[in-house]
Write a protein that binds this DNA or RNA. Structure first.
Lengths: 203, 203
DNA sequence: GAGTGCAGAGAACGACCGTTCTCTGGTGAC
DNA sequence: GTCACCAGAGAACGGTCGTTCTCTGCACTC
């Protein structure tokens, strides 16, 4: 428990938003705007209006727009990881746990604001000019590959299966985004079932 | 044969570059720069320097940067279509013709300047703000899906196979771009072989 | 109540964007 | 040679970007 006692000049929780709350509001608004319009398509002024946080405060909370971009991507990575893990955790059979990934995608694709994978989008926009963005995206995708590897290993499938399943997931995301259709999630799942079946033959 | 005769004021082919030549040079330079640095990452001034074509001339050849972007994407679409078709045409067996798509990807991925699919990248950058870009990208991907459908139909495979193979190709492109590794082409090909085999069972 | 400090609003700043305009130099016609 | 024209170079323009600064008003201290 954090004591309610405060030092002079420090706002209580009933006063104006504290820094942590503002940070989260700013990142949430930035994430929504960046995802919808691209990173370069959103100015700091628009972020100020959308978040209700003054420019002065934004620049006290973050040193630059680049830093906001970085934090938004890192937060998205955590959210993605949690979403996938909890969808997988609902299943007990190794095969069903793996397929839960595609059901998670299906649920995501039908959301109204779905516009593909934010990491792929950011890489397309800034991967060629921002080493930091490229690195975050690469690391995010590497993480996903490793996660799928643990899931395939649980099943006793050969290691070659995981990258194939990852490629299906990536392809489903871009195809669904561009076509505006959620069907690729089901198509990828059906393909994954075939690949899993083939990988487990003779076991 | 076009007669060598010229009207007054029209340059011969031995003089300064004619409009068609300049158009092609401009589009080539724009394509290279846009692909490497993103569309918004390249200014008209940089395009002028890279192409050696004055701003005045660029704006006589194209009404706006948006028009250049559009023409670059349409030219890339033609080049992609030709590249895929000619790779496929080198094979005679329906199955090999289909797999040639992934060999084409493999050859592309190892090129030094490879940075993923320009259409996926453009969609990530501008799909949310430019209806025209979104439409061109969607139409490009739709074309690819249809092409795969004709190839799977040649083989007598059920229609559900084509979207799965397309998803593999899309996933391979993004995965290879982000990881900086050409391996996804081979992984996608191996997965495609399994899916094709499964689709043809009992035929 | 007077003074102090800090927060927000938004103007200002330099840099760059896409686009247009001006200037200049060279080339062709006669 | 003289003149008209046109292309290129790059300055200029209005707008927007990320970032900083100024001003104002309020809340707190003593």
């Amino acid at each position: 428990m954090v004591p309610d006692q405060i030092a002079p000049g420090i706002k209580t929780s009933s006063g104006p938003a504290d820094d942590e709350t503002s940070r989260l509001s700013a990142l949430e608004a930035a994430d929504r705007l960046f995802y919808a319009k691209g990173i370069q398509g959103v100015g700091m002024d628009e972020l100020r209006t959308a978040s209700g946080i003054s420019l002065k405060r934004l620049y006290r909370l973050f040193p630059s727009k680049d830093a906001i971009v970085e934090q938004v991507l890192l937060a998205r990575h955590r959210k993605w990881t949690e979403g996938i893990s909890s969808a997988v955790a609902r299943e007990t059979q190794p095969r069903e746990r793996l397929l839960a990934v595609y059901d998670f995608l299906a649920a995501w694709f039908i959301q109204e604001d779905f516009r593909g994978c934010a990491f792929i989008n950011s890489f397309g926009e800034l991967g060629g000019t921002s080493a930091r963005v490229a690195e975050i995206v690469r690391s995010h995708k590497e993480d996903f590959q490793k996660y799928l590897s643990t899931l395939t290993a649980e099943m006793g499938a050969p290691p070659a299966l995981a990258p194939q399943l990852a490629i299906l997931a990536e392809g489903a995301q871009t195809t669904a985004a561009i076509s505006g259709n959620a069907e690729p999630a089901r198509q990828a799942r059906a393909a994954a079932e075939v690949l899993i079946g083939a990988a487990l033959v003779g076991q």
